[in-house]
Design a binder for these strands. Structure first.
Lengths: 245, 245
DNA sequence: CAGTGGTCTAGACCACTGA
DNA sequence: CAGTGGTCTAGACCACTGA
């Protein structure tokens, strides 16, 4: 079976990207079945009228995504397991929306406060300096699912309550021109305090899933510090990991 | 300040790797401070007597690790925030050992059983076919920390109780020539059952952190299915995420 | 405008794999 | 042994950034 591949040199889309997109879609649609050998890079390059480095760049991006495996002396194969997207720095709001859960958000606190020692350390600002404080209740199907507390450095973003109820925080940040780069997360569990139980509709002492996160932009500035609690019956963290070679 | 970089063409270590190692160590030791511009690729290549693609390959690997940021028209900069290693498919045993926690393992079950529907689906074997079952209690400082239940397909690995108590499962797999490729994980929380509480030294109904995982090798075969429970007072998941560009 | 990284070519030699 | 991916060279032209 010969896979139909072609590139358009008139397109502004890079050639390696055109190729990797076609391969990815062929894998996702089952045209390239698991275990298939791709054919060697030099022949593939000749067939497409591309240079070998360009073909390698396309293949490499799919290896990085976990869709292909390369073995010296053997060839490049489509991975057998259905690899979903590896873990990304994703927005809870976007994840829920993608899953068709129709999330809703209620902003309970949106104000400026003096940074506590913990918040100041996380955001890298002076203690007692002003920071934004945000508390939101996220529901799906009208039921509370998570309670989100966030702190943001001042002057970064217009935090409009209306917008915060219509979309997620990460999307607002990106729209404000902030380039998210990395985040440090801690996921744990503990018993709900009376106040937490009340907010989430659980009983006091019930198990809660917790997440603490500091997000950085590409200049290394902390742009957000959040402490979130989730109802474990309604939410868990699910992700794909790739072993780095 | 001029950073001292040099490559040894007599070494079997690839040139791009020699360079990326030197840059990484300079960043980790603070010789290259956050925000520093690396100097353009062409000049860097000339200085080292390398071609530009080789220099790019070195830089790219550090961009992938989150240590450098590239901006067209601007240059390549050392990231400001201390980025630790991004999330890897790591072994709990290795993580604890690295943290100086001196983990110990007690094997409670090491036997062959008929696969339940859940286990069969996870491992991709027939229901009721024979699989290895493993139950281990992991302690640090003599205190229980996690209870690990694992299932493995038959014939993959010699599961020696002595070795299992001396090291981690992933290390045994790698030693057996298995190339780990990816894993699908779910992290959640729930209340401890009476049996679970007993095993971990908690009270019944106490919150537990849970992890479910299927690990695949590079041929796409499921090599392990695990359901783990952790005492949240003694363990949490901590990791760094990078935003994929 | 000058300077940067992004993309691309057309080769070369090598190490490793499996028959 | 033939076939594969891994590494490397010495260029080229382009798009984007910021002064």
């Amino acid at each position: 079976m010969q896979l139909e591949l072609s590139v358009d040199r008139g397109s502004p889309v890079p050639l390696y990207f055109q190729l990797s997109q076609q391969l990815e879609s062929a894998i996702e649609h089952g045209v390239l079945t698991p275990g298939t050998l791709l054919g060697n890079e030099i022949e593939l390059a000749a067939r497409l009228g591309l240079s070998r480095p360009t073909v390698r760049q396309a293949i490499q991006s799919l290896v990085d995504k976990g869709l292909l495996v390369r073995r010296r002396g053997v060839g490049t194969q489509v991975v057998h397991s259905r690899v979903k997207r590896p873990l990304e720095l994703s927005s809870l709001y976007d994840d829920l929306e993608t899953a068709g859960q129709r999330p809703s958000t209620k902003v309970l606190v949106n104000t400026l406060v003096a940074a506590s020692a913990e918040v100041a350390a996380a955001l890298g600002v002076a203690e007692d300096s002003e920071v934004h404080q945000l508390e939101r209740l996220r529901c799906t199907h009208g039921e509370p699912m998570a309670y989100l507390c966030n702190y943001l450095p001042p002057g970064l973003l217009d935090l409009d309550t209306g917008q915060l109820e219509a979309t997620g925080l990460y999307r607002l940040m990106r729209a404000a021109g902030i380039t998210l780069h990395s985040a440090r997360q801690t996921i744990g569990a503990r018993a709900a305090t009376a106040a937490e139980a009340e907010r989430l509709g659980e009983r006091s002492g019930a198990p809660l899933l917790t997440m603490e996160r500091v997000t950085f932009d590409d200049t290394g500035r902390a742009v957000e510090f959040g402490t979130h609690t989730y109802r474990p019956s309604r939410y868990s963290f699910e992700f794909q990991l790739l072993v780095r070679p």
